[in-house]
Structure formats: C-alpha cells, structure tokens
Design a protein around this nucleic acid. Structure first.
Lengths: 336, 336
DNA sequence: TTGTAGGCGTTATCAG
DNA sequence: CTGATAACGCCTACAA
C-alpha cells in the first residue's frame, strides 16, 4: 500500500507538499513539483486511506442506508418499501459526490446510534418501517437524514413521501364514480405509522366524502403471498355484496386476482380491483390492472440530491410529496 | 464523542487498561477495575471508532458488495442478478460477525482496486455481469472474494452459482418429452460470460441430445419490458411452426404471455412457455407458469457463510452449484 | 514555495 | 496487574 510518505520520499519532497497537491492547493506548490508528484501518484498507484483521512477530518464520507428491522415477528421483509433500484440510484449520486454507501439493518434505536458513532456517519437514509420512539431517538442526532415515506416525521425534516392517503382516496373515488358502493380494502397488516395505515385513511375518507358508511367487515388484512391471498379472497367472496377491492399492493392485487379466477370469479365482470405500485406485473395480469403509480426512481433521486445538499451544508427541503396517480387499465367495471 | 481516553480519565486508569477490558483480556486486569471500566463505558456511551481501530489493525471490518456496471449502453439494471433480498441476507450474516456491508457499483477494474485500497476492504462479494478482463484484474488482489453466478471463474474460487445450462437443458427436455420440436429461445441479449449465454448452452445441448437441428431463427433476443416483449412475441408468432418458448426470465415469460394473449394466442393450447426464476409472479400468470426455481435466499446464505469462513482464515468452498429444478405448472401442453 | 510538528483514537510492545 | 510509548496514514497550523 502506497502512502503519502512513500510519494514524498519518491519525489524528494515533504509529505505536506504531497498532501497539498492532492488537495489541489496549486498556489502553494510550484508547477514542476505538482507535475512530479502527480506522476508519482499515478506510478505508485497511490490512493488515500479513508481511515486515516476520516480520523483526522471529522468527515467519514460514509452515508448509510438503514432499514429498520421491526422486532414484531409478523413483519416480514416486504414490509419495507426499500428496493434495489433505490439503493442503486442513491449509490450513484453518492459516488458522484465522493461518498460511500453502507447498508445496515438495525433493530433498536440504540443499535443505530452506536452504528452512527462507530463510523462517524456523515448522512443517513432511513427507509422502512419506523415507530415513533425510534423516530424520536433518531431525531436527537445531528446527522443529516433523509427519510422515505415517514409518517411520524415533522414537516420540516426531509422526507420523500407520496401522499398515500390522497392517492387511495382518488382510487376509491374512481370506483365510486363507476357505481361501486361496497368496496373492500385488502392490505398488509395495518400497523400504526406504517404506509398501509395511511392508505387506509384515504379509503375511509373517500367513503366519508360520499356518505358511504364505513364497514369494518370490508377490511381484509393479509400478507402478500399467494397462499395468504387465497385465504383473503375466500373471505371476500364469502362477504355478500362486495363489487370492488382496493388492494394496497400490486402483488396482493395479482394474488387476489389469481385466487378469484381459481374460484370462477371474473374480473372485472364479477368483481373490480385496483392495485398500488404500478410494478411491471400490473401490466401482465389478466386483465391488466388499474393501479396507482409512484416512481421510485424519481423518489430516490430526490432523496439523493437532498442528501448531497445537506452534506454540502445547504438546507434541504422538508417534506416532499410525490403524487401517485391512477393508471386506468381494465380491472374496473362500470356498474349501472 | 467518548473516547478510550475519556474512559481512562473518568475511571482513573490508563488507556491501555481500558483497551484491554474492551478486548476481554480479563486475565490482565483485576475484576474491580474491569467492573469500574465497564460501568464507565455504559455510562458514557462509549463506542469504538472504527477509523482509529482500522488504521492500526489492518482489518477494516468492511465487506463490500460490488456490482459491475458494464459500460455497454444496452445493458440495463435488470442484467444484474442482484436482489435486495440478497443484500439483506448478506448484511445479516456480516452483522452477526462484526462486519459492515458497503454497496458499491464500479465501471472499471481500476475503479474497483482503488476502492479496495481506499477502504482496505476485508472481503468482497461480486455480483452482476463481469467480463474476463475484469475478472483477471480482480483475481490479482488477495482480498477474500465470493462471486455470484460467475462464468469466468476457475473452479477453485468461491463461486455460488446455479447450473443454468443444466437447468435449461432439463426444461427443454421436458418440452421435448411433451412432443415439442420447434422450440423458441427468448432471452435478454446473449453476451459472453453472462448468465443468459449459459442458459443458451443448455438450450442447444438439449436439442443436440435429441437430434433436433439448431435453428438460429428460433432465437429471439429482447429486453424484459412489456413493449420489448410485444415485439418479440410478434416475431415468434410470425415464425411458422413454433409450439413452445423457453424464456430465460419469468418477467419475460409473463410479458410474452401478455403479448400472446393480446394477439389471440392461447397458452398452452396454441403455444407452450417455460420461464426461469420462480418469482412470485410466475404463480399469478394465466395460466400459472411452469418455470425453473432457484432460491436466492439459500444462495446468499451460502455466500455469506463462505465469506465468514474466509474472513476467519479458513478455506472456503470453490464453485458451489445450486440446482435449479423445474416447477411444473400449467403453461406447457402435451402434444400428440 | 516548502518543511516541521503535533495530533486524530486505537492497539501492541514492552517495561514496571 | 498496570502504564508509558510508539505507530497506523493523514491533515493543518505554523515556521522557515
């Protein structure tokens, strides 16, 4: 491993001069020595040691994406909104700006603060499910933070979210406009402070605005796997009068559609369905799924750019709301 | 930030003693001081500074997952076999063993070696597409490495792979056993050293074993998006006599199925199809897709465990071949 | 324009 | 059992 010292000896100057060249302080070094040193750096393959650098500079260049592993045993990985595409986008932006991405999952807030101290983390992306206690602990640290879809967050912390409630409200309104009245809500478990709860709010408010009474029997909590969907579908079928289902995930919508089909229920003739995510599968279901679109690429780009702002000492935006709009395909029937 | 020095002053001992306690060298410290120091550590919230530690210890505790960003412009992200589930599994295993996961994408081998030196990386997971030059450069470094699905790798380097060729060969054999003779191969672009090429080999060898002439007109290269699949489907339809399609990805299979349906082609009556991956969507297509299953969770666990072995100075396995078996569902018809 | 000195937090060596 | 001391690679005054 080549060090600054090596370069210094090799070129016959002091370590300070080498350091100055590395940091582009050209006004302090003669052009010839600059050249000489740069050549030596190339020749000896010098790269800075981040550990030495960080130790002395109070900036680690480490930005972490943390994923909150809830201790709840019924939570599974798909609870997290995190996707690889997000990580990749963030990594690109960080890389372009001289930062490095660590990926860390934590269970408790203490684990997290230890981690932050361990690595003197410069910035933090927070995805996944976070509860209130966790959030409050987190906000005690001064590390720049960008949240994804955080519902505990105050409006002034940088929080890249979509307005899940509004989105679902629109979808339900669309169903109502098409003559549906008994609309089921199928979702992963509705824990507080979790995305699905927010989508649930939109469901209820749409009903309220249209003077439709909320009926808790029309709420079906289920996991996204096909087996779970089959169970949920059975319950939906056995509940009389349901003409439409709002599923909080494309995956669940697709699962329900499969289960409906297995039971001889036609979509949308017998039952209409709307999904959420606009994943590529939503185009491939039979029939193509009407769903709510939100663009993770845009969201992660926003997150990354705001992080860089904060790392540069600039002020970042507070809550950023991305709209999720309804993509109308063929899974909703018009009732007469 | 609390340092060892702080603890030392607080408890009235030397930094060395504190360090000894931290490292559990209890035989060198009296029980009382151990207690005193441990209390102080709790009280002052001491956590070690990884930068200082790494600087002096020649082990960074950083393990990186790198993803090779090919410079090819036609390569898109889905070329990578990397999935978030993989990262999460790796992170868990590393965390349990005191390591930290960095995620880094690199374009060139030089970028990678710089990165390794920058962070004195202890271990490396290599996923995604790698070409031969890249591989050779990589093998010059002594960093412990675990590859995913590497086809350039020698058999003695740790390489967690599935036998793509065998898997596809089995699938094709299954089609042939069901009376199919003109079988199309639909795949993402067939670049050298890339998974799809390997799957292609299996296709060809199955044909050869059954004395069916290979016909290059039956090979359809396409991206996975629905639009691309529509184009590919058109070509397949316009090629006379094809009774079955081997798609190298469930996503592509689903896309083709959608496109076929749009053209009034029934599956499996008019055309049979087999996918690859056994993603959850493969259960939800109409009809359910016969596909090749490979379990990323098992693969990543194997990768993680072998990495830990190597980090502990033990010898890891060389090439590990996971089998991908055929999941028979309803997308293949028996011809008579 | 260049060099010297001190210190960042931790660990290892060696002496008491 | 305990404590000085030096070293890891780098950076930032400050001095020359």
């Amino acid at each position: 491993m080549t060090t600054i010292k090596d370069i210094a000896e090799y070129t016959g100057v002091s370590a300070t001069t080498v350091s100055n060249v590395i940091h582009g302080k050209k006004n302090r070094v003669s052009p010839q020595t600059v050249q000489k040193i740069q050549d030596a750096i190339k020749e000896l393959n010098y790269v800075p040691n981040m550990f030495a650098r960080s130790l002395v500079s109070s900036s680690s260049k480490v930005v972490a994406m943390i994923d909150h592993l809830p201790t709840r045993t019924d939570a599974n990985f798909s609870d997290s909104t995190l996707q690889l595409e997000v990580l990749s986008t963030l990594e690109s932006i960080l890389r372009e700006n001289g930062y490095y991405l660590m990926f860390r999952r934590v269970e408790t807030a203490e684990e997290l603060t230890s981690f932050l101290a361990n690595w003197n983390v410069d910035g933090l992306f927070v995805g996944g499910v976070i509860d209130e206690a966790f959030y409050e602990e987190l906000e005690k640290t001064s590390t720049p933070k960008v949240y994804f879809d955080c519902y505990e967050c105050n409006d002034d912390v940088c929080n890249i979210a979509i307005n899940d409630s509004d989105a679902v409200e629109n979808a339900i309104q669309y169903l109502i406009d098409n003559g549906h009245k008994r609309i089921a809500f199928a979702s992963q478990p509705l824990h507080d402070g979790y995305v699905m709860k927010e989508r649930f709010k939109g469901y209820k408010s749409a009903l309220a605005k249209n003077n439709i009474n909320f009926d808790s029997h029309l709420v079906f909590e289920s996991e996204v796997g096909l087996d779970a969907c089959r169970l949920a579908a059975k319950e939906i079928i056995n509940t009389p009068g349901i003409t439409a289902v709002m599923a909080t995930t494309d995956l669940m919508a697709a699962g329900l559609m499969t289960a409906f089909r297995e039971n001889g229920i036609r979509i949308p003739e017998d039952i209409s369905i709307i999904g959420f995510d606009n994943f590529s599968i939503s185009q491939m279901t039979v029939p193509p799924l009407t769903t709510l679109n939100h663009d993770m690429k845009i969201k992660s780009r926003l997150a990354g750019e705001n992080m860089i702002k904060m790392l540069n000492g600039e002020k970042a935006e507070g809550r950023v709301e991305c709209k999720a709009d309804l993509i109308i395909r063929e899974s909703v029937a018009k009732l007469n």
